[in-house]
């Protein structure tokens, strides 16, 4: 994971509360098998609206999303975080995040930073008055700076440390591989293993057919 200490980029004011993960990216995009390329799904229901903030030239290159409260509620789909990252966002600022969204963000190097709602309002005003204004998110000093405004940001110490060191969870956990191996040595032998596979005898499963009439496998299908 890339280290995150400080980022400066165009701020995007998203004046909406309760933006759930279905709004961030609809379920139809969940059938994809890639982790990238989700930018077209981001806020897809709103992107057809010319008035939507990302459709306005000064904001289109934005990388700091300044959102209303309760951002990222709903399903656990990590695709929401991927879509934001793929579009180019490095940080999301809000006064309240859904737990799972915040967790998924931290694992993907997207900073979900909590600000007081009045500070969000302050930044919204600057970004709307002077579109294209840059916002600096400073994780080292736990500050957000925008024009002449400097406000504090909140992020839990563990996530902050991980982001600043650029450590992904897997890398961190693998530092303790010795502990894992030792734990495994003492696991009780009754605990299950999926391999080698054990199961009841293999039995043929017949395919169900439309109209509720089961048809034997191998019988020729009706031609249309």
């Amino acid at each position: 994971m890339e280290k995150f200490t400080q980022h400066t980029g165009v701020g995007v004011p998203l004046r909406r509360s309760n933006v759930d993960t279905d709004q961030i990216i609809p379920a139809v995009y969940l059938k994809r098998v890639t982790r990238t390329g989700f930018e077209d799904g981001l806020f897809s229901a709103w992107r057809n609206d010319p008035a939507f903030v990302l459709n306005q030239a000064p904001y289109a290159t934005g990388s700091v999303l300044v959102a209303g409260p309760d951002f990222g509620t709903g399903s656990s789909r990590e695709h929401a975080v991927w879509a934001l990252k793929d579009y180019g966002f490095k940080a999301v600022l809000s006064s309240r995040f859904a737990d799972i969204f915040r967790g998924n963000s931290g694992k993907q190097g997207l900073l979900a930073a909590q600000l007081a709602q009045e500070d969000i309002e302050l930044i919204w005003k600057i970004l709307e008055t002077t579109p294209g204004t840059e916002v600096t998110v400073d994780l080292v000093n736990k500050q957000v700076r925008c024009a002449d405004v400097t406000v504090p940001l909140q992020v839990d110490d563990y996530t902050r440390w991980r982001l600043m060191e650029g450590l992904d969870d897997i890398g961190l956990t693998l530092q303790h591989e010795g502990d894992i191996a030792e734990f495994e040595e003492h696991r009780a032998s009754w605990r299950p293993r999926t391999l080698p596979a054990k199961h009841l005898p293999k039995v043929e499963v017949k395919a169900a057919r439309a109209a509720g009439v089961p048809v034997e496998i191998g019988r020729p299908l009706p031609q249309n």
């Binding site: 990590e78 799972i100 998924n104 694992k107 969870d169 897997i170 894992i180 495994e184």
Partner: peptide, 14 residues
């Protein structure tokens, strides 16, 4: 769990 956690468990079993 989310997909990052799926990867985490695949890689570390923790």
């Amino acid at each position: 769990i989310g997909t990052s956690e799926v990867e985490h468990v695949l890689a570390t079993q923790t």
